[in-house]
């Protein structure tokens, strides 16, 4: 029978792939995609813990819903930012957006 370990390892793998995307991709939208993968991994963990550990409480699902809301907000603002940056600087390569240095 299937155990919690399956889901945890799966989520960890998904998280790490997303992390690689966030850290390594040049294009900012691709970075955002990586973040989406990471968030999904987190929600899988929340739901898996709910299902396997405390199916009688709803906390895991409730937090999952909130993560969804945050993800949607993050994408909306993120993409709007990228479009605004693109208009000004004609690039959305993450390593060229470096006004913060020095």
């Amino acid at each position: 029978m299937i155990s919690l370990s399956y889901f945890l390892v799966f989520a960890a793998a998904l998280f790490c792939i997303g992390l690689y995307g966030v850290l390594a991709r040049k294009n900012a939208i691709a970075v955002l995609m990586g973040i989406e993968l990471m968030l999904n991994a987190v929600v899988i963990n929340l739901i898996a813990f709910w299902r396997f550990r405390t199916p009688e409480m709803i906390a895991g699902q409730a937090f999952g819903v909130i993560v969804f809301a945050v993800a949607a907000a993050e994408v909306a603002v993120g993409l709007a930012l990228f479009i605004a940056i693109f208009r000004r600087r004609n690039t959305i390569a993450a390593d060229e957006i470096d006004l913060l240095k020095w």
Partner: peptide, 26 residues
């Protein structure tokens, strides 16, 4: 980045495996 992701994955799996609830059945 790739190295870090790999390290994180190994670390996570290793930490999970030391946790008692890792093999909780459905």
């Amino acid at each position: 980045a790739g190295l870090m992701s790999l390290v994180l994955f190994t670390a996570l799996v290793w930490m999970f495996s030391t946790w008692s609830g890792f093999q909780t059945t459905l």
